[in-house]
Design a binder for these strands. Sequence first.
DNA 1: AAGCTTCCCAACCGCTCTACG
DNA 2: GCGTAGAGCGGTTGGGAAGCT
Length: 270
Amino acid sequence: MGCQPLEKGKPKHKKGLWSPEEDNKLRNHILKHGHGCWSSVPIKAGLQRNGKSCRLRWINYLRPGLKRGKFNKQEEETILTLHHMLGNKWSQISQHLPGRTDNEIKNYWHSYLKKRVAKAKEMDSHKQIKYASSSSDTMDSSNSLQKLATQATQNCNFTKEACQSSLPKLLFAEWLSLDQVNSANSVDSFGLRNGFDQNSTLQGAPIHDISEVPFGGGYHRCVANISSPEMFNSELKYANQMVENGFIHCMPGVDLISNFSLSNDAILYI
DNA sequence: AAGCTTCCCAACCGCTCTACG
DNA sequence: GCGTAGAGCGGTTGGGAAGCT
């Protein structure tokens, strides 16, 4: 894989919570050089962690564009719908929730949504016993979920297989500041006109994480380890052109599902 | 205030998949 | 085809914060 076996010496790897200093080292290193081979990152960055730990820390916490804080209603519904269709495929689910990590979604599911669904199912079974012969309009949340999932499937050929094989994996908002993205109505209003958030780390961010841009039904690995602001700007301009040229332009969550069609070539989260 | 319990979330672990020699 | 190593994914755990008694 082109990586040097740098961990042969089996150095003692630090475990546990990351200190702000470690975060800085890792962030600075990746923003400057990209991650390349993860196993070499801790050594090059001067960290006593293993590559796996660095990767996880970057993906789940340090990566630009991560949305933190509570899940909103729409995100919740998206998770429930996708979980209903895909099961515990957290990484696939996270691809439809820009700014959210699989770990975050998984945690949210285990700590909250799972209970909610269980409760709904329980209520459903009670109702079924009580109103065994009643009409279908007495639908509780678990039924409505099912309905939502079915609708999504019907509306846009959103089958399990389609999810796994054909959905565009990469969404520009992965590396855009999502607070800005969510508040903006267009790519233009987001960054091209107003400039970037000076506090964000986006300017120098490597863009390899977002390198899958679908084209003509397939994926096209367009950039790798690009860290120059010029390139970043050109990517945004490109995104803008895509919107202007009629690529789909939709919101995360339910809107994604209702606007999505497998016959389209690209999806752009704005 | 102190002790206990519950919940949340960051991080670890182990497994599978994939690329490469 | 086989072995090896890295990447990625999902399950699980442990520590700390919050809430309760």
